[in-house]
Amino acid sequence: MSDCWQEISALTMRWVRRLSREKFSMLFTLVQPMLFWLIFFGNLFKQAANAQVTQAPDYISFLTAGVVVMTVLNNGLAGGVDLLFDKENGFLERLMTTPIHRTSVILSRFIFVMTITSLQVLVILGVAFLFGVQPATGLLGIAAILMIGMLFGVGLTAISMAMAFSVKSHGDFFSVLGFLSLPMIFLSSALVPLAGMPAWMGFLARFNPMTWAIDAVRPLILSGWTEALPHVGMVVVVMVVFDALCLYGSAKVFRRAMG
């Protein structure tokens, strides 16, 4: 048990070190979602967005939930990138010849991605706060938002890692990533509520787990517990199923790739 902990903490520390040495890239990953989506997009559509449709005091407060979940999406989908590089330069092979639990590598990655994502979500909520968005459910609500983010993130990170192990080249990996990310955002309630979408898009968005996450985070920010609780309950069920599917599928890939 203490062996396992020693492995996982050493591996997690490595991810932290890597990130801290890539200061420029760190800054960029942290700032990008807020800058592009929350500040630019949010302010850009302030007039254009119809409050009748968004059911929110202004577009930024509507968009905050979407940006939070988008951040979870992007971090999760990119969660396997470092493993992809490790696979390509032989570092992974070196790790695999040491007497460690094969799952320690995977677990260290989950811990790292979840921590970074949570920090980022907090920063986004902080920036939104500066634009006058106050979460209606308070600190407990923020805790619930972080929990939803993690539930969604686990499944995404698992998919990303499985993909990192299965692709032939990292070009493939980034193509799939680019292909997945935007449609997932557009076909969700991140930018427009389901009711405001063309029927066929709204229909597809209902099958997107991201929609469920956003529809739970949004009332936590905008409305209050009575409105939010049923959605939160629902998203927990959806995410447990989503995570179970993702973990089941990727476990097979991990086992094949890591022996």
Binding site: E7, S9, A10, R14, R18, D86, G90, F91, I100
Partner: peptide, 19 residues
Amino acid sequence: RAIDRFLTGREHLELLGAL
């Protein structure tokens, strides 16, 4: 060259020490 370019030489060895 199974080297993590962001880690120092010592950090490589420390990581393996833990593993």
